[in-house]
């Protein structure tokens, strides 16, 4: 059995190879989804249960506090849960990345003539594609629970784009953390830290109902910008606009994820290079 000849990568084609490698890595994670659909269900468990808990158990009470009926609270709630799901994705990304570091898959990839960036970019691409599936399922469930959008296809697509942008940023946070933590077990222990990130925001409870010292940070939470922006784009009810961020929600919903990515991506790359030290 003779070894296959390999296409030599010239300098000019390196970018093309990096893109091809990225797709190969991303496809690996998508195969996971097909082989273990139960993992996707696990990811969706929190937002689905949150719809049930917040929408129905607390729905009328929160609606009363907001001086709206429970049904309208659910219209308010769903966009918050969409963004919350994007944030919870950090946990999966961190755990999976840490497992690849621990299990030697990353070492093997680093010993291949592939682009090392592709290991990270492929993960991020897969996260974004999986997020599309998650959002489709959540929006379907939302409709069942009485949520709907009141705008045309343009704003709805824009809202989806903002959510995907948020997921991409969360993916790079997860990748960086996955490269930093000591292993997947440690990543699981830290998972609970996602809760304040997801809850101290304009997601489930409107910020004006929070204590004043909490409302400020909640407004500046990157999730809040996205949630306020997509509530507007979907035509769903929002809390009273209470902060500078809420007044500039759409530009902030673009700026926050870009800033987070601009911070985490180079750090993750540096960490990857640092593994050789």
């Amino acid at each position: 059995m003779s070894a296959p000849t390999v296409v030599a990568a010239s300098r000019s084609s390196r970018l093309a190879w990096a893109a091809a490698d990225t797709w190969v890595v991303a496809r690996r994670h998508l195969w996971h989804l097909l082989r273990r659909p139960d993992e996707l269900l696990g990811t969706l468990m929190i937002p689905v249960l949150a719809v049930a808990m917040f929408g129905f158990v607390f729905g009328d009470a929160l609606g009363a506090a907001m001086a709206v009926p429970g049904t309208e609270y659910r219209e308010f709630l769903l966009p918050g849960l969409f963004a919350l799901t994007m944030a919870f994705g950090i946990g999966n990304t961190t755990i999976a990345t840490a497992a690849d570091v621990r299990g030697g898959v990353l070492d093997r990839m680093r010993s291949l003539p592939m682009s090392p960036v592709a290991f990270l970019a492929g993960r991020s691409l897969a996260d974004v594609l999986v997020a599309l599936v998650e959002l489709a399922i959540l929006m379907g469930l939302g409709v069942l629970f009485g949520w709907q959008w009141h705008s045309g296809p343009g704003p709805v697509l824009a809202a989806l784009a903002l959510l995907i942008l948020l997921r991409a940023a969360c993916s790079w946070v997860g990748i960086l953390l996955g490269l930093l933590v000591s292993g997947p077990e440690a990543a699981m222990k830290y998972f609970a830290l996602v809760f304040p990130l997801a809850m101290v925001a304009d997601t489930v409870v409107p910020t004006h109902l929070m204590p004043g010292w909490l409302a400020g940070p909640a407004g500046w939470n990157p999730l809040s910008a996205t949630v306020v922006a997509i509530r507007d784009l979907f035509g769903n009810p929002a809390g009273p606009s209470a902060s500078w961020v809420a007044d500039h929600a759409v530009p902030m919903a673009v700026a926050w994820p870009l800033a987070i990515t601009a911070l985490c991506l180079p750090l993750a790359l540096a960490r990857l290079r640092g593994l050789a030290r």
Binding site: R27, R28, W31, H32, G103, G104, D107, R108, L112, P113
Partner: peptide, 29 residues
């Protein structure tokens, strides 16, 4: 070179064939 470390550096969820094909693509086949 080829490298086989202390732990089998394989994707546990994928099949043997999928692992081989994935790493072969990353070898730029």
């Amino acid at each position: 070179i080829g490298l086989a470390g202390q732990h089998a550096a394989l994707d546990e969820v994928l099949s043997g064939r999928q692992n081989l094909e994935m790493f072969a693509r990353l070898h730029h086949l």
